[in-house]
Design a protein around this nucleic acid. Structure first.
Length: 264
DNA sequence: ATGGTTGGTTACCAA
């Protein structure tokens, strides 16, 4: 089973790039974030025409939005709301083999890492705390689960181009990393990318639009993640970042991230 | 210390 996650930054603008991703990576399921597209305007046909008939979406006008695009049928799908908002940051599905897949778009958190001064940062931390509580209450680490998405946090020193220079930059602050680690502990999640590519090897999935020469400067961060619960740990066989996609014409600022889980 | 770019909407906001 191959899972790919990608913050597409507008699914309508980049549906053709998404079909490129499908053609190159051939994932069983493509999980998208920042689709920025109301459900009734989602380009279902584009994906159905290239062999992905099973699609479930949770979108809104202008902001956020997530989607699951699959070759494999879903047994059931679900949408959860977080921190009392209906802002389209989650969608989940259970496959016929019982594996549950959660796709999240965690709030970016604004510019200032201060919950008093910046409501968006407060919202981000509350969002992660609520995720932690939800998984603690409603699921067990022994459940077969996959969690993917743009989590908007680069937890390790080697997940950013400069640990020192990003310590006070939202996405890499100690309080965010603490929150993310607590979430990981709630279900004993395994970070599949780091399982196969351990620290201190640098690994990035996002390069800002604002930094020119993104490839050579390589001021990236690893914001996009694929986690699995312990039952699936022994099945992790490969993982990678389609870095080339960041260099395509009119790219997303995120590159697709893929994990292969062998024989079920 | 600052500003850089992009997308969607609306006359700017979020990332």
């Amino acid at each position: 089973m191959r899972i790919t996650t990608w913050n597409i930054n507008s699914v309508r603008l980049r549906a053709p790039l998404a079909t490129q991703v499908l053609k190159i990576l051939k994932p069983d399921v493509l999980c998208l974030q920042e689709t920025k597209c109301p459900n009734e305007l989602f380009p279902y046909e584009v994906f159905q025409e290239v062999g992905y008939p099973h699609i479930c979406v949770n979108g809104m006008k202008g902001y956020n939005g997530v989607a699951l695009i699959s070759r494999i049928p879903f047994e059931k799908t679900n949408i959860l709301n977080w921190v009392g908002r209906e802002d389209c940051r989650h969608i989940s599905a259970v496959f016929e083999d019982g594996i549950e897949l959660h796709n999240f778009y965690i709030p970016a958190g604004g510019d200032e890492p201060n919950i008093e001064k910046n409501e968006k940062f407060d919202h981000k931390l509350k969002f992660i705390t609520e995720m932690t509580d939800w998984f603690s209450t409603n699921r067990k680490p022994t459940d077969p689960m996959i969690l993917v998405g743009d989590l908007n946090i680069a937890p390790l020193e080697c997940d950013v181009w400069s640990h020192k220079q990003l310590l006070k930059v939202v996405s890499h602050t100690p309080i965010e990393v603490d929150h993310l680690n607590r979430l990981m502990s709630a279900s004993d999640w395994i970070d599949t990318a780091r399982y196969l590519t351990p620290a201190p090897k640098k690994l990035f999935t996002w390069w800002s639009y604002r930094s020119r020469e993104w490839r050579t400067a390589n001021k990236g961060r690893r914001l996009d993640h694929i986690w699995v619960t312990p039952l699936l740990k022994q099945k992790i066989v490969d993982s990678g970042v389609l870095r080339d996609a960041r260099g395509w014409e009119k790219p997303s600022d995120h590159a697709p991230v893929t994990t292969d889980l062998g024989q079920f």
